[in-house]
Design a protein around this nucleic acid. Sequence first.
DNA 1: CACCGTAGTCGAAGCGCTTCGACGGGTGAA
DNA 2: TTCACCCGTCGAAGCGCTTCGACTACGGTG
Lengths: 334, 334
Amino acid sequence: MVTITDVARRAGVSPSTVSYALSGKRPISDATRLRVQAAVRELGYRADVGGRARGHRSGVLALAVPMRSGIHVPVVTQFAVSVVTAARAHDHDVLLLTQEEGEEGIGRVAETGLADGVILTDVQLQDSRLPLLRSRSLPSVLIGLPAEPEGLTCVDLDFRAAGELCVEHLARLGHRTVALVGSPPEVYVRRTAFARRLVDGFTSAADRHRLTSTVHPCGTGADAARAVAERLLRELPALTGVVVHNEPLVDPLLDAFEHLGLRVPGDVSLVAVCPAPVAATARTPVTSVAVPSAELGTRAVRLLIRKLSGAPVPGTTLLPPRLTQRASTAPRGV
Amino acid sequence: MVTITDVARRAGVSPSTVSYALSGKRPISDATRLRVQAAVRELGYRADVGGRARGHRSGVLALAVPMRSGIHVPVVTQFAVSVVTAARAHDHDVLLLTQEEGEEGIGRVAETGLADGVILTDVQLQDSRLPLLRSRSLPSVLIGLPAEPEGLTCVDLDFRAAGELCVEHLARLGHRTVALVGSPPEVYVRRTAFARRLVDGFTSAADRHRLTSTVHPCGTGADAARAVAERLLRELPALTGVVVHNEPLVDPLLDAFEHLGLRVPGDVSLVAVCPAPVAATARTPVTSVAVPSAELGTRAVRLLIRKLSGAPVPGTTLLPPRLTQRASTAPRGV
DNA sequence: CACCGTAGTCGAAGCGCTTCGACGGGTGAA
DNA sequence: TTCACCCGTCGAAGCGCTTCGACTACGGTG
């Protein structure tokens, strides 16, 4: 193993000079710095984590991801990938925590100095981990917006606005009766923030536009899709606009309507809230509000890094929703 | 922060005694150990990573996962989850490396002491990372079997046997003309080990049983499925048995056959090589050889931990394939 | 021309932990 | 009874790094 002392010897300076030359925490002449950098390159030096940690930066970010039902796997994976990529771009590594560990994992990471900060996903409105975050000094960023985000750094898609946007799109097309097919029931029971906020937006926009509306959570799978579709039409025979917020259900729902003899978008218009690829590659390309998982991950990292450097960061960043028109929505009665 | 010295003071012993009491590396009287443990509990002591690392155990396992095309996301996620869970059970954490980093990531982790060992997935037959693994002393476990596994620790499903098993199942049902619909072409171009080995098994079993057979890589999506299905039937009009090794293609392929007027299993029998849930929840439940991602992850961790402790470990562990009969296979001509 | 400030560097201390060597006191064998 | 040995514990050293406090040399100021 090549240590800082080796580099110092090679560059003809003292170890502390090497340290300063690399960290930039004290002025070092260009000549010296160049020699140090050369030595580092020639020797292939890399600061040992243990040693470095004494200065109290481990260069690791923790990422807590949920692995439970009702969570769409590709979205989570997308987070993970973008977080890792972004972290690497800032010279950090990523430690993977599963949500099952919940508070335990955060506590360990905080007290142990394993990670410098933590990114949380799948935030509930009343999240049990929040008190821990507030009390500890562990820097953190949430992907998701809890009920009381004061004092926390959050970044998320503005799901409320997304819900409104979907409704407005349908309303503009002349639809008067709309339904929201949501995530599986357990997601709402857990009071997962983004799901709730979408419902709020959907409902309030529907009311504002004086549309008849209803909301149904829905599990995944062809059978579940069939079941909600039938139920919706029974309850609201005039239904012509549907918003779906449930990635794996997009295709099955298209099938289900087809099976019931309804054409999309001829008889029913469908708007999805899901990652763009899901919408674009569905059986029928679906008009959608994109959930920008990758961007959220990247932003979260950027915020956390900034926080670690001591710079001030905005409390809450809500990305404005953007609706992309595809083949699944059309004016009513066309 | 509570240090080992605090614990020592509280327990009325020296710091070194605390260290030994906790690590068990020297005999400590029961009385003392109990007092130490009590102090640890009362103070909420956790060994600081930086300090601990001097003794050269960071308690972290690195996991390199691929995020490139042709890889089925849920399988990767399954690995990740089972690895994290298993690692936690052994008191370790998991650092997430993306394959894009490739050698770079492994080098960093090794030289930096960030992780104690590394688990690699998505192994190619000639994997560029292997030389690095052999040369460095970094303990590693591969999920996947490269062409020359000597001196490495590997664990994988026996894909060769899996390929054979599928063919044998079809042969036993009387099918005489069979096809393998494989992973996307790029997977083979990369010489991904598991894909190649499945093809080998499939082909040699087909030859042994004197079946007419063909192999087609295939991309994902409904169109691709339609295309292979048509092509297969054009080339082999007598085709009655199909093996598919491409998770996201299972459903589209079922659709495609249906569209061509072929019933499954009436006209064509289909065997999939994929995770059990995929097979079980397909449009028609599909007879399958399960890819036990979770078990592979767990085993990999177990092996790596064992290796870290200095215990001898088997070189290669191949899990025997198990075929589960479902609704998609039937005797020929029934 | 005396003085001060600053840029650039070094040495030493210290971080929390592990581990080596030593030591005291008991135990078993001779 | 004596000696050797081992168990249990301690003190000190050391890991690779950062950081604090000096120190030197030089240029600018009054």
